[in-house]
């Protein structure tokens, strides 16, 4: 028996909007720790890891570990039917091939339930070892989103270079080149507007902008994004989900032949 009640239902709506275009089908894993997911895009270049900790739910009942295969497009369709202020409850019985989403309006005057078919998904699970990152950049998520969108109108790839001076995002395309430098700036009034760089050594890596742009669909989940970079390792783009957990995207770099 599984029953998860999330008062801030809009979080789950935002999570689905953030990942549904990257991954078609995925297994949601439910355990005492929380509600989680790990899935790769079809080309195995990018990976999304989601964790919503059990403590973040108003009610969290998961009698035994359960993996539920869902089509994310269909799940997003169902969650779109929930209001932004609705409380969302997920329910599934042991051995059932369906999951039920229940939506309650804040005033309890409208209660809906949507039942969705589960599917068997043979997904590959990757072990991601703890890594020491050469550079960690923390910046406003809206700024990062803007940069990825702007650069993708010029080129297909972005070179992210971190030095003591700041973080540089560069691209080149048929019409020309672009460089955007964000300097460390932790003297702003609001902490969510700061750009903070922790660096042990300079790093420069190339990534496909198409994926970066897809990751920025998680912007509504957090005002801050963290980029963790190391030479010859996938970048980790993390959006923290307040009081609940995180959504992390891993993207393999492009490497010169």
């Amino acid at each position: 028996m599984l029953e998860l009640r999330l008062v801030q239902g809009s979080l789950l709506k935002k999570v689905l909007e953030a990942i549904k275009d990257l991954v078609n089908d995925a297994n949601f894993d439910c355990s005492a720790t929380g509600f989680s997911l790990q899935a790769m895009d079809s080309s195995h270049v990018a990976l999304v890891a989601l964790l919503l900790r059990s403590e973040g739910f108003e009610h969290y009942r998961c009698d035994r570990n359960l993996s539920m295969g869902m089509n994310l497009g269909n799940m997003a369709k169902m969650l779109k039917c929930a209001g932004n202020d609705d409380i969302i409850t997920l329910k599934a019985d042991d051995g059932s091939d369906t999951v039920t989403f229940m939506f309650e309006s804040p005033t309890q005057d409208k209660i809906s339930d949507f039942e969705m078919k589960l599917m068997d998904i043979d997904s590959e699970h990757l072990g991601i070892p703890e890594a020491e990152y050469h550079a960690i950049v923390r910046m406003p998520s809206s700024e990062f989103g803007r940069i990825c969108k702007d650069l993708s109108s010029i080129g297909d790839t972005v070179v992210i270079s971190v030095t003591k001076e700041g973080v540089k995002f560069s691209t080149r395309g048929d019409i020309g080149t672009a460089n955007i430098v964000c300097r460390q700036n932790n003297t702003v009034d609001k902490p969510e507007e700061a750009t903070i760089i922790e660096m042990t050594e300079p790093v420069s890596l190339t990534f496909a902008l198409r994926y970066m742009n897809s990751f920025t669909k998680a912007t509504p989940l957090s005002s801050i994004v963290t980029l963790s970079l190391s030479s010859d390792l996938p970048v980790v783009v993390e959006y923290k989900i307040a009081e609940m957990g995180y959504i992390r995207f891993y993207l393999a770099p492009k490497i010169e032949e």
Binding site: M40, H125, G127, L233, I255
Partner: peptide
């Protein structure tokens, strides 16, 4: 042009 790597070149399958 740089080549796109695959995640399995960095992480192992469990």
């Amino acid at each position: 042009t740089p080549l796109q790597n695959n995640l399995s070149e960095f992480y192992f399958t469990t």
